[in-house]
Amino acid sequence: MTKQEALFSYTLRLGDNALILGHRLSEWSSKGPLLEEDIAMTNMALDLIGRADAMLKYAAQVEGKGRTEDDLAYKRGERQFLCNLIVQLPNGDFGYTIARQLIMSAFDLCLYEELVKSKDETIAAISAKAVKEVKYHLKFATDWTLRLGDGTEESHQRIQKSFNDIWMYTGELFEMNEVDAILIKEGIAVDLNSLKARWKKIMTEVLLEATLTVPADAYMQTGSRKGVHTENLGYILAEMQYLQRAYPDAKW
């Protein structure tokens, strides 16, 4: 694998995570528990899809085959996507979405605060913007974890169950492969192992304050780094890519 191939794969991974998580959040439009929360969900979706747009644009440029960010978003199949399994999961109830958002926002904060120092200027610039946005996402998810965890008996049980159910998808966030090895050497990527402790610390602090239990690290799901995804991803892409695929000659 060349450095260029590694960088293409890495930017796809970052872009796809933002795109698919943004897609899931955008599904909350008109479904939020309060109009204010509806707005907040849309706002995070906007940040994430904006980040995906920037990251995929850069991926297309790195690849150098004349593809655009839209080609990458709309014309790749399931096995070519590199997003983590966790972002593909259906939204569940509001608490499940909040649990996933806390996990992802804490992870993204740890990741992008390091990537700001990347030797790749484009990644560093996108990361600087991401850090500002992610801080807000993390605050939103933290506030709601506290309210739900330390709210009513029902909300406590619901969100505890959500964290328990989703926990097996967290291990994969830290998996690395040849792509990481090459780019860490170049000072472009970060060693994901080095983020683990801080991520765990954020999660533990928030969950304990919310009177919740941090789930045990049992068996973890895996697959996305090899393009082996959840069954949900196919449906997401079928919906997202429908117009581009149905009218291949059209420009939008």
Binding site: G32, P33, R147, G151, S155
Partner: peptide
């Protein structure tokens, strides 16, 4: 749709009030 979003969010609003 509006009613069902509102009803599905009832437990969330209750939790926020309790908190």
């Amino acid at each position: 749709n509006h009613i069902s979003a509102h009803e599905n969010g009832a437990w969330v609003r209750e939790a926020a009030n309790a908190y």
